[in-house]
Design a protein around this nucleic acid. Structure first.
Lengths: 344, 344
DNA sequence: CTGTTAGCGCCTTCAA
DNA sequence: TTGAAGGCGCTAACAG
């Protein structure tokens, strides 16, 4: 890159000391207005910007955040859920003057990531997506007092900050909807059961059934992975039962899309033969073959709020654990069969 | 965060000078093996990692790259194309020891981004996705000699590095395929015509037609935006023609999916009434309602190679403009109708 | 092969 | 309100 100026040169051009330029840069009040003007003038003329590295070294802050994605699968970024989350996060970070670094750590690289990256402190705080029960990174982060916010409640850790939705209640409502439509044999494909969203949505499913005096049938509960292939495989297994379910609560839209493929392959129609309610309300839910009835969660807002929380904590230097809960809403479309009934 | 050690303290624990520790850290050859061992031992015991900011200040390198996304639409990250590209980029960056910063700059923020972010040099180089003809950032990058690689050839700039596919030839083959199937009235929905991929794919379409003695019908060429809604709208317009096309070359899978919605809404079947060949071969192409015949491009590899090129340039300090061309391949599925014919 | 010595560019006391 | 001076943690000559 071309030689860029230093604060020293700006100072001499503006005929003040480095300190004064620094004060102007950092919006210190104690600078005479006329001097400030002159300095700003020179800065603008010279197109000067202080070097991030020098600043970081001096004030111990990088003005950047890290978004840490799990990388169990090779396709995190292809998951629209993460994409939308990221959209929200990036928006806030930029608005509030933070850079954003991205990391996707493979399971076997976690130690390495911690040692080489995290301890070198290239960022002020981080946002973790989808915390797994036994995530090895969390204890290290806590020990080092690295500020972070989880984008989902951790299965049992509570002395951290997170942002969440009411997974259990939302799932319960989804299943109640199916019950109201007359279904009694309802299956579910859950999320990963080492995440709290996976467990909670399953529990909401169970609760709804029990409230209606319907027993839990273990063979109707299949653990999935939030991805289409998991939905496909799960549905296939359920279809092999002697008495397959007439309705499904599927813990993510993507899995529901996979499950619908399996149903179609088996010659079954949604919602006529099998009703479906899913979770997330991704754009794909609306455009699916059969538009999905699904629990809407404000994904972008979640990312947005998580980032706001983190930056607030950083700027106020107050890291007392906190959480925020976002609202959800059941969106009725075609896959549950409700429109069939009213239509009929 | 907890107080972390400095190189000085590691040095005194290992009973050597800072320089020696520094040499060990940077894998300098000139360190006695036994000393190196001792230092590494201490480093590992203390869980030490040099601070990124201090390093950057001293050696003028940040070890980080920026991925710069266009942000015309609010949904860059929802585009699987970018997601897959990013996957490849992140992989290489991590493997070669670089951090990755992410930016999505809104059109009206470009000046600001340049002034505040770029000039503060928080990264060593950047990868730009989808360069538009009149992108205001490019001239500034060139002026500042900021190392960068484009993930698509710029419409006319040639003294830069980029990675590309042969858009024209690929599009030509796609259209030839439709011609071979007997179609004579073939329409196209193009990409944005201020990008080179948009222009080149359209030109490939024209070339194929002309080679077969078919005149270009301007009413059959509609400019799109690579997104589903653009495909939907474009197809709708074409369907209003007195003599609609019997086949379509659509410059992206997402637009093809949108176009198929429009066709379905009009009661037309793919491929029976309207054959379609598209471009990209996203995962969605395989799983579409009617699986898409489409030009496969190695998206992840493109990201991978772009990053390799950039890092090579940085590490060899050789910034002579270069480009690399990746192969494409027409994947025949159902939407073109080829299988109908062989089946029949 | 190793230690000494200057910086890298900025922020921040401390005096004036 | 301003300037002088020291230091943030590391790298990179330069000596030895």
């Amino acid at each position: 890159m071309s030689q860029s100026l230093t604060i020293e040169e700006i100072a001499s051009l503006a005929q003040v000391s480095r300190s004064t330029v620094s004060r102007v840069l950092n919006e210190h009040p104690n600078v005479r207005a006329s001097v400030r003007e002159r300095v700003l003038q020179v800065i603008s003329e010279q197109n000067y910007a202080p070097r991030a590295a020098a600043r970081s070294l001096a004030n111990n802050r990088t003005q950047s955040l890290c978004f840490l994605f799990p990388n169990k699968t090779s396709s995190v970024f292809e998951d629209p859920f993460f994409a939308m989350l990221m959209q929200g996060m990036l928006e806030v970070a930029n608005r509030r003057g933070y850079f954003v670094m991205l990391s996707a750590v493979a399971p076997d690289m976690e130690q390495d990531f911690y040692r080489k990256v995290l301890r070198s402190r290239p960022f002020d705080g981080l946002i973790m997506l989808a915390s797994v029960e036994d995530d090895p990174l969390l204890p290290m982060l806590l020990r080092d007092r690295m500020p972070f916010v989880l984008c989902e409640r951790h299965p049992y850790l509570r002395n951290v900050s997170w942002i969440e939705i009411d997974n259990r209640e939302s799932a319960r409502e989804a299943v109640l909807h199916l019950l109201k439509l007359g279904h009694r044999r309802i299956g579910t494909i859950t999320g990963p059961l080492n995440t709290s969203s996976g467990v909670e949505r399953r529990d909401g499913y169970k609760q709804a059934l029990l409230e209606h005096g319907i027993g839990i049938a273990p063979e109707l509960i299949i653990e999935g992975d939030y991805h289409p292939d998991g939905g496909f495989a799960g549905m296939q297994r359920l279809l092999q039962l002697p008495d397959p379910p007439t309705a499904m609560f599927i813990a993510s839209d993507l899995m529901a899309i996979g499950a619908m493929r399996a149903l179609r392959a088996a010659g079954l129609r949604v919602p006529h033969d099998t009703a479906i309610v899913s979770f997330d309300d991704l754009p794909a839910a609306r455009f699916a073959d059969v538009p999905l009835t699904t629990v809407h969660q404000p994904i972008r807002d979640i990312g947005l709020n998580a980032t706001d929380i983190l930056i607030d904590q950083l700027e106020q230097q107050d890291f007392t654990p906190t959480f925020r809960r976002m609202p959800t809403k059941l969106i009725i479309r075609d896959s549950c069969g409700a429109s069939l009934r009213t239509g009929a």
